[in-house]
């Protein structure tokens, strides 16, 4: 049989998918063991036991000073900022993106601005945001919105524009107003796309969150990672990175689930 026609079985698919993870894990363990054999105090690639001890310290031991469980307070602080930033971005994207996609007048007025703003590197604006909005939560949420919203807006506007003209004309012949067309023809088709857009923007959103927390904060996942960086505490940084990744994966899966539940019709299109 030609290679191009060979399919993995269900078990084979699982094994092949797990293989790179296992290889990466083994490479880490080997590297860590080598470095630790040379210098038992090495901090760059800590052994599994020190990683486990650090997880225990951060997640299951109350902090000596505040009595809080640091990992959970950090997670709550970060997720609150991330949720606020993504939520605001989604609302903005829906309003502006629909308007720009649906109404030629709004498109003429908004599209150039949005295209321009979406090209501004958000991290370059960070010092400005801190001075204008202060070091508190506002500037961190604003950074996420500035980074994520323009891309979502453009994406939604393009999706709305790509709706076949015939559908709009058909609705018009059925005497639908602009408002009704927006509500019943365009919204059901762009809303699933909004969820997909959010899924794709999870990575950048985390990036902006961590960058903002690194500069000024008193809690948060990025704050903690950058704080312990001073002490080369890879035993804390690695679990935090893994935890952030896991959170992002879970949010991605959660959004996919929401999409399927709320917009089952979008799946028909996808299966085809």
């Amino acid at each position: 049989m030609r290679w191009i026609n060979r399919q993995p079985g269900p078990g084979g698919r699982l094994a092949l998918g797990a293989l790179p993870f296992v290889l990466l894990g083994l490479a880490y363990l080997a590297g860590s063991a080598l470095r630790l054999a040379e210098d038992p105090n090495d901090k760059l690639l800590p052994a599994l036991t020190s990683l486990a001890a650090a997880v225990d310290l951060m997640a299951f031991t109350p902090d000596r000073r505040t009595g809080e469980y640091l990992l959970w307070t950090d997670t709550a602080a970060s997720l609150l900022r991330l949720g606020a930033g993504l939520g605001l971005s989604a609302v903005l994207a829906l309003a502006v993106g629909m308007a720009a996609g649906l109404l030629p007048l709004a498109r003429a007025a908004l599209a150039p601005l949005v295209a321009f703003v979406s090209m501004v590197p958000p991290l370059a604006l960070l010092p400005v945001l801190f001075i204008l909005l202060g070091l508190g939560e506002t500037s961190k949420i604003a950074l996420i919105v500035i980074g994520v919203a323009p891309i979502l807006i453009r994406d939604l506007a393009m999706t709305a524009q790509a709706i076949p003209r015939e559908q709009i004309v058909k609705a018009e012949t059925l005497s639908a107003s602009t408002w009704l067309i927006g509500l019943h023809v365009v919204l059901p088709q762009v809303a699933p796309r909004l969820i997909d857009g959010l899924r794709l923007q999870l990575g950048p959103a985390f990036l902006f969150l961590i960058a903002a927390e690194a500069i000024s904060a008193d809690s948060g996942l990025g704050y903690r990672s950058f704080l312990v960086r001073r002490y080369l505490s890879m035993d804390i940084i690695f679990p935090y990175v893994a935890w952030i990744t896991l959170l992002a994966v879970l949010m991605d899966l959660g959004l996919a689930l929401i999409r399927r539940r709320l917009f089952p019709w979008a799946e028909l299109e996808r299966a085809r």
Partner: peptide
Amino acid sequence: TERDVTVVNTADPDMVGAFQTPDV
């Protein structure tokens, strides 16, 4: 003691700008 205040970690290049914001 430190319990009487709240410490907010802030990067040193941003100190001067930060002092000019009302919440600092």
